[in-house]
Design a binder for these strands. Sequence first.
DNA 1: CTGTTAGCGCTTTCAT
DNA 2: ATGAAAGCGCTAACAG
Lengths: 256, 256
Amino acid sequence: MPEDKPARRKRPTIADVAKRAGVAPAIVSRALSPERRPVSREKRERVLKAAAELGYNQNPLARGLATNSLDMVAVIVNHITDLSDLDLFDPLLEAIQALGKQAVIIRVGNTEKIEDFLRNSAAFHVHAALVFSDFADAEGVRTLFHSDNVLMLNGRFDAKSAYITIDEAAGIREAVTRALERGAKTGALVTGRQTSLIEQARIQAYRDICAGAGLDLVQELQGDYSYASGLALARSIDGASLPDAIFCTSDAWPWA
Amino acid sequence: MPEDKPARRKRPTIADVAKRAGVAPAIVSRALSPERRPVSREKRERVLKAAAELGYNQNPLARGLATNSLDMVAVIVNHITDLSDLDLFDPLLEAIQALGKQAVIIRVGNTEKIEDFLRNSAAFHVHAALVFSDFADAEGVRTLFHSDNVLMLNGRFDAKSAYITIDEAAGIREAVTRALERGAKTGALVTGRQTSLIEQARIQAYRDICAGAGLDLVQELQGDYSYASGLALARSIDGASLPDAIFCTSDAWPWA
DNA sequence: CTGTTAGCGCTTTCAT
DNA sequence: ATGAAAGCGCTAACAG
């Protein structure tokens, strides 16, 4: 792989375009801006022409520095390993790009503190941050990404952050009901990492709903959503006293 | 979601750190640089302390503008929908981040010309670009991302780009051999988008190897790697003259 | 509407 | 080893 060389030839800047079009740099900036800025029709056309001839490309860094904003959104996840992630991320990427922005996917992994993780790596000024990882809190993300547009999807929102929470109780109720209809008297619950607020809520919902419906939750097994852990847990279920039903708190609803 | 407000409070800059540490901004820059720059031990410590107290975070945009490089790598893909993508992208993201860089995933979708796609969106100065999408060529990527570090994984490399190609002939030979061992005389080949160079190479390899081994390739069916297309193609295979073996050029090797 | 002038925050000569 | 100063490329504020 070729090593870091400085760019081969300098790229044309706004000044080059300005010179070629015979206008001031500011005019170029306005003419090329997506917003409607005051520029005479004639100069705008000269600028567009010059820019095209020069193969001019805006430097997002310079723009970002000047406007204090970058057209990027940070997507903060633990990892991308679940089947359901496929259904999630592809449309998400598409949507973000349709907005003219790019997505930086921050994979936090199992780092307990996202701050530790990012301390030495760059913390971007992003347009927005979407937080799926349960390791991140709203204030920390705002600080790290220099943005007030944080959307918390992990339940850890605060007054200043937007959030989406899903009422999973309905689905859980449905699952339990269905199990009961099939004659289940006892059940086991396979859970994921319990530090997740959303996961805690799910578990509590299962307990409450099962209790209310008269289904005896005889076992709670903790995994980490991975196929491997699921397999291991499955083996660990006592064959003799097999519960009638097994519920999983995984993100994807298999019966959906 | 809160709308675009200017950042609530100004973030501390290198100047703030310098003031608090009683040194020049340049010293702060050197002290905080990952590389070993000449700074007296004592001042370095003062700087580090001041930075910590202020909660200083470097602004990557300013750094990028000054150094003409950003610690990001662009990953250019068609989309993320295959099961095998999970196995690929999660470790890839992890590896990229372990290098202290962030990954921007550019989802080209079905856009025929990546340039069209990116014309209006920002073209980043990235440290490197990894190209999986078969819609992108080396020169275009170098230009768009202002980087000479392009790694072509789609077969469309040129003299200046790094590349990785996989010798799939071995695997194909193995697959054909296995089919023959099981008594197959005829076979069908399910292919993907034929504009991909890699795909073309695979198809040719199947043809050559089957011909050489005496297995009669009676059908070639073109899909697009999606489950849906696979299903449709499966239905289209004539039940009466069912071939003995069916080969797929999909990226994931099901028998691996 | 247009051009000039300041910066944005950081790195980097270049003197000291 | 240190600091002053000059930019990186762009946008925004201010005069014309």
